[in-house]
Design a protein around this nucleic acid. Structure first.
Lengths: 340, 340
DNA sequence: ATTAACCTTTTAAATGTTTAGAGTATGAAA
DNA sequence: TTTCATACTCTAAACATTTAAAAGGTTAAT
């Protein structure tokens, strides 16, 4: 492990001052051609690369953004991340990634840790715990300290910052309407994410669609929970009622519903049509029958979030107003719904 | 955006020197109780947090590790990453993540970028392109410069560094043997990753099992390719031969094989048994019938890799010999294979 | 009273970089 | 020959931190 070349070492070796070396390497007109050539050649020989930390200290920025997501194994978040990484890379930014594991405390801790110089700004999707407890003070504190945050998907209503969301309400409304248009009279709602802001919005969209079509709400075929356990049992209970349509707010819910429907001998889509939100890539489109899904454009969400953040970081203006970008979802019709 | 508190500002405000403040906050015995209390209180009031970059420059390390993986949408890599993140977090390290997108050039560029002070060490799974071209110089260069690298899964044979691998050869051997034990006489091999080191090793394991059991190699039922396109067509061609077992080297391959088998009217596992390597979480165990898989313990791989790297970073010894840790896979018997 | 010992604080250097400003030499113009 | 501009290089400060070493002051011991 040979010591890395620094300006200081080069300066000493060539009997010039550190600043001469710096200026020569930055091609300053103050330095004579002869000296420049000499220094540049020597630097190349020694494979000199400016030390990033020295630069960071000088510039008081790091060209690094911190991403905090609840869980990388959820492929929606993985997709968003890949969008972030793509844009960050294009603009010369690094990405530090932290997993909150849905813990409010780890979220807060990470914000604290990274905001003291390590990163220039954050992109965050709020942890379940923080959403449940409406515990958003750690975000406000960081923003007040001057570190910008962009939130996506799971956002904190009260916190003033840039946000990127999916049109959860509208797409739930439209999807439910789609089921109604297909002739479904008894549409079950399956939600295992009723603790999340997005879950609530989607459920509201469903209810709105029923209301618009003068369909009475049947609470026997509505499952709104936040527990992972007994999901199967709970869904099976829903099946004890008459249903001809299922609207699932999460990929897990729709996959589980499909399996149960098939097991109970229903024909999909002939007897029951199923539409579900799809976080992921793998499951839904590969099942038989493949699931009609509402795709959430995870990659695009990530790209937009990264652009918002970097634009703010590089803006000369002090007080750019905060933006909320809504990404439109798209209904991907597959085999689990009849054709109109 | 109020300016963040620094030692300098505190020192000025309290009319002491910067070093007094530093020492007081670090609880140095050199400083009197009175002064300590005064400084600590003021620092707390101003919410002083030491600037990490200043520290990094001083300590010449950043407590940050760089992870370079080919693709975060592949859930095997997502799993490994979550293992890395977990250990890193426990030991107080941050993780910068970069996606190589299977590009050798981006891989090299990332190594270059980050190795000049930003990170203390790397964890890498080699890009497809680099593996194809045996283009590993960028790794050696970084290691020579004194930045440690730990490679996992897709490793570079010639490069001297810590490695974490799965026992690809042995597990392919054992899985094929398992199919043979089940009575399969004509076991097809499906590989769409024949360009990767792991793909080659697994194929060799398959061949070795046939050899051991004196089963002639039938090249008509062996598919070794590195192209994603026409995978379905290629697999369908394999089905034109007599087969009663399928050994798939990648999740995609096994899922595709299952669908095709079912479509062609085969009963699984009665007519054909299927075993596949499983990178992911979602697909295989949810299909009907669910797939028997070789699970790769992605999270454990990540944990071990992170431990290896951090141990090396924090070791006082200069020349700790490099290690190669082999993680044992496990056959998860599900519905796509008969019971013995 | 002198000195040693001690306690507390400050100075200065170090990490690697940039850059404003000062300094020096050379050549030309007056 | 003096002066001035020009061309080049160097000094020093800045970013935020730590720490060895020096310095200042008090107390106690000889």
């Amino acid at each position: 492990m040979k010591a890395k070349a620094t300006l200081k070492q080069i300066a000493k070796e060539l009997n010039v001052s550190v600043s001469t070396v710096s200026k020569a390497l930055n091609d300053s007109p103050e330095i004579s051609e002869v000296t420049k050539v000499k220094i540049k050649e020597y630097a190349k020989l020694k494979n000199y690369k400016p030390n990033v930390i020295g630069l960071n200290l000088k510039n008081r920025k790091t060209k690094t953004i911190g991403v905090i997501i609840p869980n990388i194994l959820n492929s929606f978040f993985a997709k968003v991340f890949s969008g972030i990484e793509k844009v960050a890379d294009e603009k010369g930014y690094n990405v530090i990634m932290c997993i909150s594991n849905e813990s409010s405390e780890k979220e807060a801790h990470t914000l604290e840790m990274l905001s003291n110089g390590t990163i220039d700004g954050f992109i965050v999707s709020v942890s379940e715990e923080a959403q449940k407890n409406q515990d958003y003070d750690h975000f406000s504190a960081i923003i007040n300290d001057g570190t910008p945050i962009v939130m996506f998907d799971r956002i904190a209503e009260g916190v003033d910052c840039d946000k990127v969301i999916v049109d959860d309400f509208d797409s739930a409304l439209n999807s439910t309407q789609h089921l109604i248009d297909l002739g479904c009279k008894n549409i079950a709602l399956l939600s295992s994410i009723d603790n999340l802001s997005v879950g609530k919005l989607r459920a509201e969209g469903y209810l709105k669609a029923l209301e618009k079509n003068n369909i009475a709400v049947n609470s026997n075929i509505i499952l709104r929970t936040d527990a992972e356990e007994d999901l199967k049992e709970k869904i099976e209970k829903i099946f004890e009622n008459t249903i001809d349509g299922i609207f699932a707010l999460e990929e897990n819910d729709s996959v589980a519903a499909l399996r149960i429907a098939l097991k109970k001998g229903f024909k999909v889509p002939e007897d029951i049509s199923i539409i579900g939100f799809a976080d992921g890539i793998l499951a839904s489109r590969r099942l038989s029958p493949s699931l009609t899904t509402i795709s959430q454009h995870g990659i695009e969400i990530g790209e937009v979030a990264a652009k918002l953040l970097i634009d703010r970081l590089e803006s000369k203006e002090e007080h750019v107003p905060y933006e909320t970008v809504v990404i439109k979802t798209k209904l991907k019709e597959r085999e689990s719904t009849r054709k109109l």
